[in-house]
């Protein structure tokens, strides 16, 4: 196996009394596309936020490029984050800036480049997501798919080592999905970026991932290449991949002690 870019050791995270993760360990290999999959509500997005150190774990360590991100000072953390790009579920474009200004923002904030140099990088990045013509539009004028592509261009503006995609395919039409799949793959291969993809779209994820992790109930239930995952005989994995309504994850929501007595 290739060397890991992100290592998660014995991670536990609680929201209130509810355990989101319990003693989870997983590795994300360098230079590959890793898909983290799982049913809704298993805290896949939480995992990305933990990696970016926007949230702190209750237990365990997360190493990004060998550094424990939760032990870093604020300043060092911001330095590490410059090497991370994140594509948020909603795109999270800054609504008061135009498309070009959005992409230029991280460059203006973190580099000393001249205005003309920044402009050419912005157009370059927009070109790579196929939206060079949209530079002067405002985010509210973009369609959902375009907004996500602009957000992707912004995420890669600083040429990061790691790009995290939070549910990139959710709510996209088939054409946009196809475009995003192509872009993610292309970016990963051209710039030798490590990509982490969080999704519950089985088909798209398996088609581009080199490495797959399936999370359920706060644990990793399967990890490996897409082929090994698809060949898995674990009933939980099979139910998730095939989308069967009943199985280890029951169709009926389990009755809790409070609701058992029924109305009195």
């Amino acid at each position: 196996m290739v060397d890991a870019y992100i290592e998660v050791h014995d991670l536990s995270f609680y929201r209130g009394d509810r355990a989101i993760y319990e003693n989870v360990s997983l590795t994300i290999p360098k230079g590959k596309v890793t898909a983290v999959m799982g049913p809704s509500g298993t805290g896949k997005t939480t995992l990305l936020r933990l990696i970016a150190a926007q949230l702190s774990p209750d237990q365990g360590r997360i190493l990004v490029a060998g550094e424990d991100v939760h032990r870093l000072s604020r300043k060092d953390l911001y330095k590490v984050r410059k090497k991370m790009g994140m594509l948020f579920q909603s795109g999270a474009l800054f609504s008061d800036m135009s498309v070009a200004e959005n992409i230029a923002f991280p460059l203006e904030e973190h580099t000393q480049l001249s205005r003309s140099k920044i402009e050419s990088i912005v157009l370059d990045k927009l070109h790579s997501v196929g939206l060079r013509g949209a530079a002067n539009l405002m985010p509210s004028e973009l369609s959902g798919g375009m907004a996500r592509r602009v957000a992707l261009a912004r995420a890669i503006a600083l040429d990061p080592d790691l790009v995290m995609y939070d549910e990139p395919f959710t709510g996209q039409d088939p054409i946009s999905k196809g475009v995003l799949v192509k872009l993610i793959r292309q970016l990963n291969d051209e710039a030798n970026i490590t990509s982490v993809l969080v999704s519950h779209d089985v088909e798209e994820s398996l088609s581009i991932a080199d490495h797959v992790c399936i999370l359920a109930g706060g644990h990793v239930i399967a990890e490996g290449s897409p082929e090994t995952i698809q060949a898995s005989t674990d009933p939980q994995v099979m139910q998730f991949l095939r989308g069967e309504p009943d199985g280890p994850v029951p169709f009926h929501y389990p009755e809790t002690s409070e609701s058992q007595g029924g109305p009195r």
Partner: peptide, 17 residues
Amino acid sequence: GLMKATEQLSSYEMMGV
């Protein structure tokens, strides 16, 4: 609040701002 809901605040944080 809207900036928070659309993850713009997180986005600034991710960019080290």
